[in-house]
Simulated scan of single mutants.
Amino acid sequence: MSAEKTLPRKIESLQELAADYDALLCDVWGVIHNGYNLFPGVAEALQGWRENVGPVLLLTNAPRPAEAVQRRLDRMDCPRSAYDGILSSGDAARDMLTQRGAEGQVCYFVGASKDVDVLNGIDIEFAPAEDADFILLTGMSNDMEETLEDYADEIARWHELKLPLICANPDRIVQIGEQVIYCAGALAEIYENNGGEVIWLGKPYLPIYETGLTRLQKMTNMETPRILAIGDGFKTDIPGANAAELDVLFITGGLSETLTQESQTPEDVETILRDYDSYAHYFMKHLIW
């Protein structure tokens, strides 16, 4: 995989890269959908890749099991023929909860009702923060209305109790339709910056990329498949792929378009990503085959 930091190349279709790679490691939110609807042409682009090139593994920081992510894609009419598998940070959280439950640890859960799938079937005790050994954070209770300031007192209480925090969604923000909301990563970042212990799961951390590589090795039946990573997250998708030494296709029609609206040229993209100490090899607005 290329690690050379040159200006990213603008592409008009995914077909331009088909001969150079064997598999895709593709983000979900901001690349495939905006929280409500699929982006036009995305499903066809992924289907085209699978039919003509190789497997597509979806890699998401959703703090829910892969099955829950799939159900959401089903509701958006994303065909299952567009991907071969899903790997979520929620799966990693379930593995960690199972391990800690076996050790007799007690969990304090912070998150929305939509995230409770991550807890189902796990043998672990839950309790208020004062009686817990650690925190599992999947996000705000009501992320459509709450802000970071609403959690200032709660975060201060976590500090007083000196509880380690497992962040099941490292995303700081995400786009839902035209609205940008805060994710678990924004709260965890505040906690960590003020001295709290945070265990980060998902992108941009290497363990989830190592798991993804193992899966794609099996899917392609190759020891070293040429993998193209696709994402729109400044702090997650792109630096994570860089750390994993994967080539990157940056999608400018997700968070970049919402937050900057200045990603039309290679120089624009380089400048935007440089602020996050990351870089991309290619860019396009939305996936098109």
Rank of each mutant, 00 (worst) to 15 (best):
L259T: 14
R94D: 07
N61E: 01
Y21R: 02
I288Y: 15
V118Q: 03
T214D: 15
L201Q: 10
N37G: 00
N120I: 09
T252I: 04
L273A: 06
P55H: 10
N61Q: 03
C167N: 14
Y209P: 00
C26F: 04
G202T: 09
I199D: 08
T6L: 02
I227C: 02
D268H: 12
M1V: 00
V56L: 03
A280R: 00
D95R: 13
P8H: 06
I272M: 08
G101A: 05
L17P: 04
V248N: 00
G253V: 03
E67T: 11
G196R: 05
A280D: 01
M144L: 14
E160C: 08
A280F: 00
E125Q: 14
A127V: 04
I122F: 13
A3G: 12
T60V: 04
V106Y: 07
E257N: 07
K218M: 11
I238R: 01
V180Y: 09
I208Y: 04
G104W: 15
E160D: 13
H159Y: 08
T60N: 04
I199A: 10
D150E: 11
A3L: 11
R64W: 06
R226G: 01
P225R: 05
G104F: 13
N52G: 02
V198M: 15
F126N: 11
S256M: 07
D171H: 08
C183M: 14
T260I: 05
Y282F: 11
E178K: 13
R75H: 13
L165Y: 07
F134S: 04
A19D: 08
Q70L: 05
P63K: 08
E4M: 03
L58F: 02
I32Q: 02
G177L: 05
R274S: 14
E67N: 08
L46A: 07
S256I: 03
P128S: 07
G185N: 13
L287Y: 08
N221F: 11
A93K: 10
E145N: 14
M144D: 12
G139K: 12
E178F: 07
N52A: 05
S88T: 10
K114T: 11
R172C: 09
Y182L: 14
G101D: 05
A132Q: 09
L255P: 04
R172M: 11
D123V: 04
P207Y: 03
V106R: 12
